[in-house]
Amino acid sequence: MSQIAEPIVIGKFGAVHGIKGWLKIHSYTDDAESIFQYKPLLMKYQGQLQEVNITEWKCHSNTFVAKIDAFDVREEAQALVGVELLVNADELPELDSDFYWRDLIGCQVNTDQGYHLGVVTDMMETGSKDVLVVKANSNDAFGQKERLIPFIKEQVISNVDIAGKLITVNWEPDF
């Protein structure tokens, strides 16, 4: 029996724009504008996964604004502020040699010397580089600890084994 993958968050609705129900769109896609190419685009609204029908969109002040079908006035659109935009995982493009952030979540992180630093629980984008959020296991002799490790290939990240769920880093453990 095949397992249906959970939809992937690729953006969210921001503040209402104007009086006719337009909303700002925060895109998490590599090419921000590509968020409008995913079909179907989904949202979790009123406890249910629903298809989003964007009737118009445009670039406005270094961001995007969009008109959502059936949300025609500011007060209606206000209900969507903060709602995440999702896409079925099989709609994401295949990557040749790289991986998605979601592939890194749950990976064990070890140093080149074999010290276990913890598990990747999140990723952050800082503008200059991506950062792994690594939490030490409660079994760790040093207690629960969170480390932020820059995702800089070769300099910090020695190896990423997605299949083995292991990331090896050139990083000194901070005791």
Rank of each mutant, 00 (worst) to 15 (best):
P93G: 01
T63W: 12
P93E: 10
L23P: 06
G47I: 10
D98C: 12
G82A: 01
Y38V: 02
V65F: 03
H60Y: 13
D122S: 10
L23I: 09
S138G: 06
G127Q: 04
H60P: 01
L132Y: 12
H60L: 12
W22A: 11
E76R: 14
I35Q: 08
F64G: 04
C59I: 09
Q37F: 07
T55W: 02
T121H: 02
L86C: 10
G82C: 05
V134S: 08
S97C: 08
N62M: 14
V134C: 07
D122V: 00
D69L: 14
C59W: 10
A70S: 15
V83S: 08
E76V: 04
N62S: 13
E33F: 13
Y38Q: 00
S61E: 14
W22C: 08
I54F: 00
E84Y: 07
W22V: 03
E125M: 06
D122F: 00
A66E: 11
M124C: 01
S34W: 00
D31R: 07
A77Y: 04
T111H: 10
K135A: 09
G114C: 05
E84S: 13
S27D: 08
A136V: 02
W57K: 05
F71Y: 15
I19P: 01
S61I: 09
G21Q: 05
W57A: 02
Q37C: 02
G21F: 08
V119K: 12
E91Y: 03
G114E: 03
K135C: 10
R102Y: 11
I19E: 12
I105F: 02
D90A: 07
A77D: 01
G18Y: 03
L41F: 02
V65K: 12
F36T: 03
S128A: 03
L86D: 08
E76Q: 15
F64D: 06
Y28D: 01
E84W: 04
W57D: 00
F71V: 12
S138L: 15
G21P: 06
Q48G: 04
Y38P: 14
G106V: 14
I54W: 00
N139V: 04
Q48C: 04
V131W: 06
G127P: 07
I68Y: 10
W57P: 03
I25A: 05
H116V: 05
Q108N: 15
E51R: 12
Q113I: 09
R74N: 15
W22F: 07
